[in-house]
């Protein structure tokens, strides 16, 4: 049986993916601009089904949050003290970190950067070796 915290942690995983995609789009569309001056509008990652609060932040600040899988960016006062602690605050957002234990395993498993790396690794394994490609041989992954 899933607990409320597990369900919220999974929903957070989707919002973290959403934010990673929003950040990637802004990064792509502003590729000649340094991340420190690119402002992105993200969405609160609190996991509340009804929350889609917009969060303005600098791209470089967002990148720092994503370096740690147990961290999320949320609107001020949207933290859940039962599972997390605020580690940084700004006028527009707070950065929270889930406590160690079961609840913190889901954020790690659903980390968008980890998922992207796994996907990339899977994709690389599925590619035929260069010699097979150049010789036009059939190849089974």
């Amino acid at each position: 049986m899933h607990s409320r915290h597990d369900d919220e942690a999974r929903r957070r995983g989707v919002y973290r993916e959403l934010n990673d995609q929003l950040a990637k789009l802004d990064s792509t569309f502003n590729e000649s601009t340094p991340a420190a001056v690119v402002r992105v509008t993200l969405r609160c990652e609190c996991g509340n089904r009804a929350c889609v609060r917009a969060i303005p932040m600098m791209l470089s600040d967002y990148e720092r949050v994503r370096e740690e899988p147990r961290r999320s960016v949320i609107a001020p006062d949207h933290e859940d003290p039962e599972v997390e602690v605020v580690v940084a605050e700004d006028r527009f957002y707070a950065v929270v970190e889930t406590f160690a234990g079961h609840a913190s395993r889901i954020p790690v498993d659903t980390d968008p950067r980890r998922r992207a790396n796994l996907k990339q690794a899977k994709h690389s394994r599925a590619q035929p070796p260069l010699d097979a490609r150049s010789e036009g041989r059939k190849w089974i992954a």
């Binding site: 999974r10 929903r11 995983g13 989707v14 919002y15 993916e17 959403l18 969405r43 089904r49 889609v52 659903t110 968008p112 998922r115």
Partner: peptide, 12 residues
């Protein structure tokens, strides 16, 4: 991501 994480309902 939603499919892999098993989240249903409305997605953003």
């Amino acid at each position: 991501a939603a499919a892999e994480i098993h989240v249903d309902g409305a997605l953003p």
